[in-house]
Amino acid sequence: MQGPHPDGLALCRIQSALAADVVVGAGKMDIPVTAVYASDLMSDVLAYGKPGSALLTGLNSKQAAISAYMAEFRAVIFIRGKRPAEAICKFAEEKGLVVLSARDDMFEACAKIADLDGTAADPSPSEDLRPPMVEEETIRYAFLIDGHDFASAGMVSTQVKAILKTVGVEPALVRRVAICTYEGEMNVVMHADKARTELVLDDHEIRVVIDDEGKGIPDVTLAMQEGWTTATDEQRALGFGSGMGLPNIRKNADVVDLTSVVGKGTRLEMRFRVI
């Protein structure tokens, strides 16, 4: 439970309480959000945020919009008057995310939203447009992730998510795969030189393998521990690198296989059962 609005609170009510500017999604202001997640740490958003939430953040980077999309949020509200860049707006527009910009700081915004009465909101009917699962077929895709390329970070997982949605994988499963792929992708961007990524799915299983070339991980067991990190302050400024990535992956994937050779690279295989 991350907010007092289990029945949903229409975005227009939040927008008017905060006197926020609608940056993207003016036509979607009647959509309800069911919770509010206030954080600048994207791994936490991915780990604890609930689908249908609004993200309240001061992290004015594309990673905020990508994380919100991966976690199935409906809106991103930038605080302290931050205006998202064109690339963020374009991404949000494409993915159907609402983007607001509010002048309040995080506490002011939280307090004003907490003051709204969620029960008065009238949630619009949720739509379910997913096509039937493709039968008896193995789908295979390959992608390349560039290490150190923070500008494109998150694009491979965005494509993976779009593919899974298109073939009609159940939304909760899509979300889990997307979150794991995104964390894996960010690890490559932060710590490796490049990686081949493979997505394989059939009726029974979805498999994502991220095979990187880079410095490798000396102690895999240690790396799986929550809070353990070698990220730099610059990387933390992107909302990642808090030592939540691999634990988050383990939480969301059914099977995780992580092998690493120091000086060569790391192979992360994540498998998800399709029921």
Binding site: M1, Q2, G3, P4, A35, V36, Y37, A38, S39, Y48, L56, M106, F107, C110, A111, I113, A114, D115
Partner: peptide, 12 residues
């Protein structure tokens, strides 16, 4: 609680 939940309590 989360940042948001604690905010609501502080407001209260």
């Amino acid at each position: 609680g989360s940042n948001f939940e604690l905010s609501a309590k502080l407001h209260a």
